[in-house]
């Protein structure tokens, strides 16, 4: 039962993380390959503030603001770039944030990581046991899901999709494309920060090595496998992939093989991404109104 609850909590957290990337990648057409940076910022900020006895409610708000602010600052220079350059710029940014976590030892304890992050207390109710944390994660993921659904179905969301389909035409209709992209990017960063904060308080230990490119790849795979630009795609992708990843972790393997397990799992993820792109780039769930061979042409 504990195992099952653990699995559910991880899936819920990754659903939030994947939904935030889906807003950027799926709906706005932003190739964010450094999304883990905001996940990490949220995790570190919330952990550090609560470790310094700031109440969880406040710490969470501050960490969301930090993730959002970081997203805003990054988006100003990098959103001027065409699609693939934006991809590399964000990829580099993700690495830089990790280097900062590693080097600012006075703040983050560097590679040693931060142990003993407290379980959250919301309005004097402590979420310590697994079922309690499950409820907390469930509430936040449902909230994120419906907020994002509202955003996507609003006129604002329609403009985002229009930008993805044809940037110049949207500009011609009098929309400030740059500003819409920044808003989408910042919203995505805030939600990624939320996922990161929830994750940090759940595992109670974070270190720079938790926020590498592998996390970005995992969340990218979740979105792409499930179906980018769909409401339920990231949910489906998160259930499938997190189930696969976490169940591998509980395989009873002899000690000498465990060294091979992590790279092997990552190799499978990489291969899955490639095969998906070649054979079914739209993912399991297909976006409504899209037929098979019509790709999204963005940033051209």
């Amino acid at each position: 039962m504990d195992l099952f609850l653990h699995l559910c909590i991880m899936i819920l957290i990754y659903i939030i993380f994947a939904l935030s990337l889906n807003l950027e990648l799926g709906y706005t057409g932003l190739f964010n390959f450094g999304h883990v940076a905001f996940f990490g910022m949220g995790a570190y900020a919330s952990a550090l503030f609560t470790l310094h006895h700031v109440p969880f409610e406040l710490a969470l708000l501050i960490s969301l603001a930090i993730a959002g602010g970081g997203g805003f600052l990054l988006s100003l220079p990098s959103l001027r770039l065409r699609g693939d350059y934006f991809g590399i710029a964000t990829l580099g940014f993700g690495e830089i944030i990790r280097i900062i976590f590693q080097n600012e030892v006075w703040l983050t304890k560097g590679p040693m990581g931060l142990p003993g992050i407290s379980k959250p207390t919301l309005f004097s109710y402590r979420f310590t046991t697994l079922p309690q944390y499950f409820i907390l994660a469930l509430v936040f993921s449902i909230l994120s899901f419906f907020i994002l659904r509202m955003v996507i179905r609003s006129p604002f969301g329609r403009v985002l999709r229009a930008i993805r389909e044809d940037e110049i035409a949207t500009e011609a209709l009098g929309k400030n494309v740059f500003r819409f992209r920044v808003k989408s990017f910042v919203t995505g960063s805030i939600l990624a920060g939320l996922a990161g904060a929830l994750w940090g308080h759940y595992t109670t230990f974070i270190s720079p090595s938790d926020f590498t490119l592998s996390e970005t790849i995992l969340v990218l795979l979740i979105v792409v496998l499930g179906g980018k630009g769909t409401e339920w795609g990231p949910v489906l992708g998160a259930i499938l992939l997190i189930f696969f990843q976490e169940s591998l972790r509980f395989l009873r393997l002899p000690a000498e093989y465990t060294r091979y397990l992590a790279p092997l799992q990552q190799m499978i993820f990489g291969t899955l991404l490639i095969l998906l792109m070649i054979f079914r780039p739209e993912g399991i769930l297909r976006e409504k109104g899209k037929t098979k061979n019509v790709g999204i042409e963005t940033g051209q």
Partner: peptide, 15 residues
């Protein structure tokens, strides 16, 4: 399209 190529090359790099 571009996104497909980029994700494929990212997956390849990871592999």
């Amino acid at each position: 399209n571009r996104l497909t190529l980029l994700i494929a090359s990212l997956g390849l790099s990871f592999l």
